[in-house]
Design a protein around this nucleic acid. Structure first.
Lengths: 344, 344
DNA sequence: CTGAAAGCGCTTACAG
DNA sequence: CTGAAAGCGCTTACAG
């Protein structure tokens, strides 16, 4: 496999020009005469010249590469965010290196260090649940432009793109109230996870805005929410003396687990207990009845994140000019059979 | 943001050594005295030195980067293959650039060209459905080591990692026969897609091995199999004078669409019609009854693909030594309620 | 065992 | 409008 690629030098020789001139002509430098420019660009095309991005990057101290670190690539929502990132990266001529941090804080930090070593121009980060302390990340922030998305931390001063979790949850719970529900349970994570807490805030707010007292018995917190955990919590909820008449689960998966239990015990959904999930997964349309849920536009989140990152990369030299924003991306509630209005 | 990183030169100055010596010491070159080695490695650590991979790559004509082109990253199966790729890449010190070809042949070729321009050491490719002609890809094959996985083409002479589709389908259909089914329909794609054709072969083989005549009316072919198409085909199947007593759908999604129709018309699954899918998606455990399906180890496929690619990268200089293999990864049948043995 | 030097392909001040 | 030269950070034959 020969890979002798055409270089500036080759073009220069063919044309009896200097390498400098060829280089400049190809970049459309204003100093070069139109004739030469035309000559060079034609020859370059003819010889099938492609710039050695490696050499360019080496020379310019920029790689046109962006590093992305996410907890797990095979979560559907994550992969839609990645699609948003890839799409925009391509348009802007950036390549994207992707790493998984799994559920390890250590791996996460390692990956970030790798990214720096790979000379990425900037990093896009979505935190693992297991993130412990942020000092490591603060250090990284000093070395490379960084934008966080989806799973973020308020302790890290950087631009962050998130779903408007509080508002989304508020709408979900308000919807339950509107269909006549009064004892609305929430299935959420224990404190660690910001996303979960913000959804909880939305829940509390909606109840209080509608003068519904908060019953602590209806707040179910657990670590590592999953299908299985959804089932367990549903069992707990059913065993309450005063059962809830609705469940707001902060993930679809957990909502589906809960529904399986309700179905098993022939608890009518939504008549006896309505259910709302979060994230509009494919499965939410498969479960019976179909699950009302909140659609998070992964694509837009990813795209917004990389947009801001590229902007920061552009201005990172002039220290001080970088303004950190928190952008909240709007979601929408998709109403399906699991919360159909109960007539009467 | 200052990014003045430590270079070999800095270490050399500190230690009053030449750059050459420092470079060699760090690589453990046998020529360097143990004392110097120790001195240098310590100093490097102390100064927090990280090699500039860019400069190394530029110098060595290798980037330790692998390019991956897949049709769509947000397909669950695809993302598990990517996980396999990423995991092994990390272990071997390779970074991974990922691109989506969407459903466009043109984009696919563009992405491959990009990869070459990015100086990747090798490329991992899974074809889009829309692949038209392979000349473009053959040309790329001349320029960079390439291994294909999952969606492949026999017309391209390179190492290919695929699921043993024929055998998998054979087992699925044989399982249906074993539970007493005789009129087994297949829901498949039209010819274009190799995967689909190989599953069809397995279907035919299983029937003929068990002396069950093939009824062309039971072979349903359609383009772009989807949930919706699964529903349509199920409707067609139900309208047959002689209904099938089982359906082998070559994707889970399509199987689930079919089941929705069966459920709607209160056709008992599996008693009246049993259903088998393909790929063990999360949804296959959500649909009622749970779907029997074939588990494809995406992780292993990805890992195997990158393993072979790295091997090829190692030997690509000595032309002619590269042997192209087709590796078939074994699958397993996961039996669930949709094909439970019908007693009597 | 160590060092000086060339070169990977490109860009860009400097000079003319 | 064009060219010669330096340099990005590293590796590696060549010399001693």
């Amino acid at each position: 496999m020969k890979k002798t690629s055409v270089t500036l030098k080759d073009i220069a020789q063919e044309l009896n020009l200097s390498i400098s001139t060829v280089s400049r002509a190809l970049k459309g430098h204003y100093d070069i005469s139109p004739k030469t420019k035309k000559l060079v660009t034609q020859k370059a095309k003819e010889m099938n010249y492609y710039p050695n991005l490696f050499a360019q990057g080496f020379r310019n101290h920029r790689s046109r590469t962006i590093g992305v670190v996410v907890p797990k690539i095979s979560h559907y929502f994550t992969s839609t965010m990645l699609e948003g990132i890839l799409g925009h990266a391509e348009k802007k001529g950036y390549k994207v290196i992707i790493s998984e941090s799994k559920n390890s804080h250590k791996t996460q930090i390692e990956m970030l260090h790798n990214m720096i070593q790979y000379n990425v121009d900037g990093v896009l980060l979505s935190l693992t649940k297991a993130t412990e302390g942020v000092e490591d990340i603060l250090k990284i922030l000093e070395r490379v432009p960084l934008v966080m998305f989806d799973k973020v931390s308020t302790k890290i001063p950087c631009t962050q793109i998130i779903v408007d979790d509080k508002k989304a949850a508020y709408h979900a719970v308000e919807h339950l109230i509107n269909i006549g529900k009064k004892r609305i349970a929430i299935f959420k994570e224990t404190e660690k996870l910001l996303t979960s807490e913000r959804r909880f805030e939305g829940y509390l707010q909606a109840l209080s805005d509608h003068n519904i007292p908060i019953d602590p018995k209806l707040v179910f917190s657990v670590e590592d929410l999953s299908l299985e955990k959804g089932r367990e919590l549903a069992n707990l909820a059913l065993s309450l003396k005063e059962r809830p008449d609705a469940i707001f689960a902060i993930t679809d998966t957990c909502a589906i687990g809960a529904m399986q239990v309700l179905n098993k015990f022939r608890v009518a959904i939504p008549e006896e207990i309505a259910v709302v999930g979060f994230s509009n997964s494919f499965s939410s349309t498969i479960i019976q009845p179909k699950l009302t849920t909140i659609n998070q536009p992964g694509n837009i989140i990813g795209k917004t994140a990389i947009k801001y990152l590229i902007k920061e990369i552009g201005i990172d030299r002039k220290e001080g000019l970088v303004v950190h924003k928190t952008i909240e991306i709007a979601t929408d509630l998709i109403v399906r059979a699991s919360t159909l209005k109960v007539s009467g």
